[in-house]
Design a binder for these strands. Structure first.
Lengths: 348, 348
DNA sequence: TTGTACGCGTTATCAT
DNA sequence: ATGATAACGCGTACAA
């Protein structure tokens, strides 16, 4: 099989020349557009395969403005939450021929900005984003607006930016999720409940905290400032505070987590303090990975429908890409409480 | 601040016209190339910012053949292994201004082929791949070769394709990893050892199996066909076989896992059979996620340097992209045995 | 230092 | 049904 050494890539014009027809006909034939006889089309397609023709997306998108690519902005790649989001996203993107660029911004505003600019330059057709807000309330809202003005639809998932309502979004009903958790604990007889806020400022965490406060007030449950553990930058590091709390006599009977890494911290801290679960302290986890089931004891947890979030968000996005003009939809999904064995039933 | 309604995107020519200079000068000014006076350059850059100029990568790459993008082929997105690979990859890509497209082929040959073609069309500058081989020995070797001929460098990570040596690669020294595990178990007094092969045919798994057989023979350790558990399609599903093995009186004293999902299956099966670890059976895990540490007991495991694999692979790739012409390097990394509490010390 | 002219590979428009 | 031509936005060799 002879083949040009390390030659120039074969283009539509090469095919055209070889067949003594015009490039436009080749283009039509390959694109499956009308206006080419069936036989000619066949010949073209055969030759294309034979000559290893590979279409050039850059040239194509210069003309059509389509790249069949979207951007996926992830707030912290270390959180396995996003693995499931990616699965959900991928499952609808692949069949439609879309690719995605992963942008892990690591809770860093500048990185988010850099990536947004890259995505614009790259010509992605849409962006799925879990946007960042710092403790001091800073965010890239204006940049997101610029992206939208630039003609690139954006869908927020998992998180929102406060005061920016003109985007589609898919998030968990965070308040209710935690409130339901508190109700559950109360039903199990718990009246002293603490909570671990993975990181102040984050949309999800603040929402969950709101739910906690509301429920606690409603049920007139005791809680104390020392029982509200706040994570700090970097995430995953409220370990020491937890140990201190767990060593104290004044600890609550149950503690609620607000995301998966935080659940891990809680378990680790309990372990290192020699506390048994649920005998010495009850734990209500957040997020549900397989490991929760494997633990001893298995962890009772608040499960969010993660793949669903990804799937719905990307479906919304593709709708916009296809020209959907409705006003923005704000979707809130319900969490589910998975009962296992990390919460003790207290006698009243 | 007046701004054109929903106007055409601003291009280099727009900037040029506004400043009464030529597009080429604008191009040079923006690209930081010599041949423009400092003041003019400033003026251009200011105007660019003011007018929200966004460079068009498609047009640029049509000229330069550079997209600042690579493809990352992942064999199964459900395996958290790849989260760490992505972290490693990202950590060296981001500072260099490269983006990456994630392609999860889900152990499916056709999907791998589809993605490879997309990546070629898309004009990625390089591809990082964990290539697939089926039980029957099929693989996309020829397609990978075509990609290479097409001028796109490929680096294999985690897995290789048998008989295809003309690519750079970064993999674990799988044989030694498992062999060392066997030695370790033997030192702890174990003489009846089983192994769980996550899925036959996969490069990594077969290599690990080789290491097992060699070590077992060398040490003259007893093993039986029933103690070699084989996963089947779909992955993660040798659960029933494990339960059968664990319920039998004839079970080994220790069992070795060959990847993370398999470790989970083992633990789950042991649990459902009421076996205590390590009293009733010792478990040597493979891969190390945080959860291993949180388990009761914490899992002794073979840890591969996952982020390193990603980091080295992408570094190799960027080298090729930069024109490195050396002959392919095959890098093998060593695993590390993390001793925790899931392996019992047997009296001799 | 700056401008002119062309081409990258493709598609869309208009003509035949 | 097919062909000719222009245009997408940018970089670059060459000219000035």
């Amino acid at each position: 099989m002879r083949r040009f050494a390390m030659s120039r890539k074969v283009t539509i014009s090469d095919l055209a020349r070889k067949l003594n027809i015009s490039p436009s006909t080749v283009s039509r034939a390959l694109a499956g557009k009308p206006g080419v006889s069936a036989e000619l089309r066949q010949k073209v397609q055969n030759l294309a395969k034979e000559m290893d023709y590979v279409p050039n997306v850059a040239a194509k998108s210069l003309k059509t403005k389509k790249t069949k690519t979207i951007g996926l902005i992830i707030s912290d790649i270390r959180n396995p939450f996003f693995l499931d989001v990616m699965r959900g996203v991928e499952s609808v993107l692949f069949p439609r021929g879309y690719k995605f660029i992963v942008c892990s911004v690591n809770e860093n505003l500048e990185r988010e900005a850099v990536y947004l600019n890259w995505l614009m330059e790259h010509g992605v057709e849409g962006i799925l984003a879990s946007p960042l807000t710092t403790v001091s309330g800073k965010h890239n809202g204006n940049l997101y607006r610029k992206v939208a003005r630039f003609g690139i639809p954006v869908v927020f998932y998992d998180r929102l930016i406060n005061g920016i309502g003109d985007f589609d979004s898919v998030v968990l009903d965070n308040e209710t999720a935690i409130a339901d958790g508190v109700f559950y604990l109360r039903r199990k007889g718990h009246k002293k409940i603490g909570i671990c806020l993975a990181r102040r400022g984050l949309y999800t965490i603040e929402e969950r905290y709101k739910g906690f406060k509301k429920a606690v007030e409603l049920l007139q449950i005791e809680t104390r400032p020392e029982w509200i553990i706040e994570g700090k930058h970097p995430m995953y590091s409220s370990f020491e505070k937890l140990k201190k709390l767990f060593s104290s006599e004044e600890r609550p009977t149950a503690i609620i987590s607000t995301n998966h890494p935080m659940t891990r911290s809680i378990l680790r801290a309990a372990k290192s303090c020699g506390l048994r679960i649920p005998e010495d302290i009850s734990v209500l986890g957040f997020d549900d990975l397989i490991e929760n089931e494997l633990m001893s004891p298995p962890i009772t947890t608040i499960r969010q429908p993660v793949m669903e979030i990804g799937r719905i968000a990307v479906t919304l996005l593709l709708g916009r890409i296809d020209g959907e003009k409705e006003s923005p939809s704000s979707i809130k999904l319900k969490a589910e409480l998975i009962e296992r064995e990390s919460v003790k039933t207290l006698v009243e």
